[in-house]
Simulated scan of single mutants.
Amino acid sequence: MTGVDCELATRSGRGVRAVGTVLARASITGGRVLQGAAFTHAAGGSGEHRQPWSHYLSRPGSVETIGKADWADAAAGFLAPAAAPRGIDLGSVCDQLLDTVQRSGRFDRRPPFRAARTTLRWVLEPAAAGGGERVEFTVGDGTDRLVRLTLRSPDRAAVAGWCEDVALHDWPLTTVTEMISRGRLGEGPHSQVIDRIRPAVDHLLHLWMPGVRADHSLMPLWTDLDKKVRFQQHWQNSIDRIRDQLALHTLTLLASTAGDREDAAGHRSTLA
């Protein structure tokens, strides 16, 4: 839990002070993927003055505004692309947590491959009375992903877990796609191509299990998201490309072995 006392980011630039705490956690999947998550629930405060810290500590994972806030403005500000962090910097909280875990003496610090971090920023808003539910996914600048959820009577903890699951699967998809791009499939000897994409086969392909760690009640969100973003289709296309390269490599080795046997047989026949 991290204490914060700063302004909320807003699209309009109007400053709204918020005080409270941010909850953060880290997880490791398959011994290979380290993930950090930080989140807080923003709500209006009960007065125009800051409360003692004991008040905020009794509400872990929540911040309260001092003064009236325009929540649509705050949501748009949090999701807006920005060169520098604004408002409550949840990304820095995550980065500090990840760095702490990676410095742990329990790891051998010999990663089998290098990959860039990705970031998913998300906002959950309650649906208006009689309004529908929806999920929006946008690829921002570089490795930034943005998710905006509008739900009726949402379970905030379950939604946080669902967003973590989305981020957990966006990262291997992004990483495998980058490996395929760097692998220059179809160029150079097959053995070199296989060496370039081997880390994906050895360490990432078996981790693809969308929705397994998310709350079952939110599975329709995965279905809705996949219809829009085509996560599963992009992943399957990547898998097919890798398997095609493995098949071509195998056929090349078999053809080479068969050719060597024919040459050896012909040589023995000449000697006879």
Rank of each mutant, 00 (worst) to 15 (best):
V4Q: 00
D5K: 08
T10P: 02
R11K: 14
R14W: 07
V16L: 10
V16K: 05
G20C: 03
G20F: 02
G30T: 06
G30A: 00
A38F: 02
H41D: 10
A42G: 07
A43Q: 14
G44L: 08
P52K: 04
P52H: 01
L57M: 12
L57W: 13
P60H: 12
E64Y: 03
T65P: 05
I66A: 03
K68Q: 14
K68H: 14
A82V: 04
A83N: 08
A84M: 09
L98N: 01
V101C: 04
G105K: 08
R106G: 04
A116P: 11
T119E: 01
R121M: 06
L124V: 09
L124P: 07
P126Q: 04
P126W: 01
G132K: 12
E136L: 05
G142T: 09
V147A: 07
R148F: 08
T150F: 04
D155P: 00
R156T: 12
A158V: 03
V159C: 12
V166L: 06
L173P: 00
E178R: 07
I180V: 14
G183C: 05
E187Q: 15
P189W: 05
S191Q: 14
I194W: 00
I194F: 01
I197W: 00
I197D: 03
H206S: 14
G211P: 00
H216C: 07
L221F: 01
W222S: 02
K228W: 09
V229G: 03
N237C: 02
I242N: 01
L246M: 08
A247T: 14
R261W: 13
D263S: 11
A265D: 09
S269T: 14
A272C: 13
